[in-house]
Design a protein around this nucleic acid. Structure first.
Lengths: 235, 235
DNA sequence: CCGACACTTCGGCCACCGCCGTACGATACG
DNA sequence: CGTATCGTACGGCGGTGGCCGAAGTGTCGG
C-alpha cells in the first residue's frame, strides 16, 4: 500500500542482510579503518565482490570511506551506525553449539573477544561488563533512575585524569548491550574516555587483528586498585 | 571466512529487509496485536504472502503470535524487538520530497502521526518530544549525567498518581530516538506509565487505525497545567 | 618508464525470494 | 448443516542480488 518509510527501512536493513556485508560491519566494529583488501581476506570473498559491497554500504550511509593512493579505507560512518550494528548483533540469537567454530585458532579468537574487546570506541566483553558493574557497586554509576553517572562518578573521572570534554550532542553515558555477555556496559562519552585512557595508560593493548584486547600486567594492578576488578578471573 | 555471528546478524536483518515485512513491523509499532488480514489490507499484498511473512517473523523472534479461533494475532515479541525496529527506522534516511505521498488522505495521516503517536508503549511524535523537553526544562528529567529522572521527577510521578511499579529488568527510563522528530523522547517504565496514564485519564485517545493519537480538550488543559505544554502549538 | 599492486568495471551464471492463483482446512454464524 | 470468512500449503513465475573471472584504471616503487 505504498508506505515510503517501509521502503527506506527495508533498504537500510538489506545492507546488513547479507552474511558478507554483515561480517564486514562486525569487523569494522573495532572502530578502525580497514582497507578493501583486508576485508576481502577477512570475509573470504573476492576483491570485486568486496568492492561492490563497500559501494553499497557507503551509499547507504553506514560506512565512510577515505581514499589514500591506491587504498580504499572504510570505517563505520559514525557512532549511530555502530550502535545500529551492535544492537542488531546483540539481538541476534546466540550461536548454537552445532555452528560453533571447531578449529583451535578460531576458538581461541572467540574466547579472546569474549574476554575483552572494544565496541566501536568503548570497552566491551567480560572486561567491559565487569567495569560497568564495579562502577555501579561503588556508587559511581547508577541505573536506579536511568543509566547515569553519580556525583561520585564525576569526581572519580576527574580524580583519575580521565577527561570528559568533547561533549557535543553526544550523551555523557549510554548503556550498550554487550552481545557476548547479554548485559549492559558503559558507552557514550564516558565509556569512550575510559577506553581511550585504558589504552593510553597501557592497561590494555590491542591484540590480534581486530577488536580483541589483552589486559597487561600493569593493567591488572590498575583495574584492581581502581575498581576492585580481578582481571585474572575474567578467564 | 565462516563467521557464524555474521550469518546470524544477516538472518535477523533480512527479516526487515523486505518492504512488506518492514511495513508490517512499522504498523505493529503501535504496540497492539493485528490480525493477518488487517496486515494484508494494510500492506496491500495477498493473504498467502502475509502468512509466509508472519511465519518468518515469528520464527525469527521478532513477532509473537496468539491464535484465537480463525484469527492469527501477531504483535512485536517484546520491547527489545520494538527498539530494534525503532532504531532502524530512526536511522533510515528521511523520505525525500519526491517520494512523499500525494493524496490528501495520506498527507493527513502522516501529519497526524508526526503530531502524536505511540511508539510501542510510550508517547512519541511532537507530543512525545515536547513532553520530554518540558520535563527536562522543569528539572524532572536530566541528560546531564545520562538520561535519568531526578528526585523531583520521581516525586512528580508519585504526586500525579502515575504508578512506576512493574520494574523487572526493564530500565526506569530510557531514551528513544524519535523517527519523525529526530530527537530523543522518554521511554522505559516511566515512559510507558505516562502513556498509559494519559490514555486512561483521557488526555489522549487513539485516532485512526494505527499508532496515531489525538489530544482531547481535557488533555490540552492537563498538559498545560502539568508541564506547561501548549498542545495547540503542536500543529 | 615499467612492473607490481590495489581496486573497479563488466558480463554472465546461479540461487534465492517475494508474489500470486488455486486449492484446502478450520472456525464462526445463521 | 450449509455458507461465508480467515488463514495455510503448494506450484510456479519473474526479478533481484551475490559471486566470480577477465579485463581495465590508477598509484606506488624502483
Amino acid at each position: 500500500m505504498h508506505v515510503p518509510e517501509a521502503t527506506r527501512l527495508a533498504t537500510l536493513a538489506s545492507l546488513l542482510a547479507d552474511p558478507t556485508r554483515a561480517g564486514m560491519c562486525l569487523a569494522l566494529l573495532d572502530g578502525r579503518a580497514w582497507t578493501a583488501g583486508e576485508l576481502a581476506r577477512h570475509t573470504g570473498v573476492g576483491a570485486p565482490t568486496v568492492s561492490e559491497h563497500l559501494t553499497r554500504l557507503v551509499e547507504g550511509g553506514l560506512l565512510a570511506q577515505e581514499r589514500q593512493g591506491r587504498h580504499r579505507y572504510v570505517r563505520l560512518a559514525d557512532e549511530t551506525a555502530a550502535q545500529l550494528v551492535e544492537s542488531l548483533a546483540a539481538h541476534a540469537a546466540p550461536v548454537p553449539d552445532g555452528e560453533r567454530p571447531r578449529t583451535l585458532r578460531a576458538v581461541r579468537a572467540g574466547q579472546a573477544l569474549a574476554r575483552a574487546r572494544t565496541c566501536y570506541d568503548h570497552l566491551a566483553g567480560r572486561l567491559g561488563c565487569a567495569v560497568t558493574e564495579a562502577m555501579i557497586r561503588r556508587g559511581l554509576l547508577t541505573r536506579e533512575t536511568g543509566f547515569a553517572l553519580t556525583d561520585a562518578g564525576l569526581a572519580w573521572f576527574a580524580e583519575h585524569g580521565v577527561g570528559l570534554e568533547q561533549r557535543g550532542r553526544r550523551p555523557l553515558v549510554r548503556a550498550c548491550l554487550d552481545w557476548t555477555e547479554r548485559r549492559q556496559h558503559l558507552a557514550g562519552v564516558a565509556g569512550a574516555a575510559l577506553c581511550r585512557h585504558a589504552l593510553a595508560a597501557g592497561w590494555c593493548v590491542r591484540s590480534g587483528s581486530g577488536r580483541a584486547l589483552r589486559v597487561t600486567e600493569q593493567g591488572e594492578t590498575a583495574w584492581r586498585e581502581l575498581l576492585g576488578i580481578d582481571a585474572e578471573a575474567l578467564g
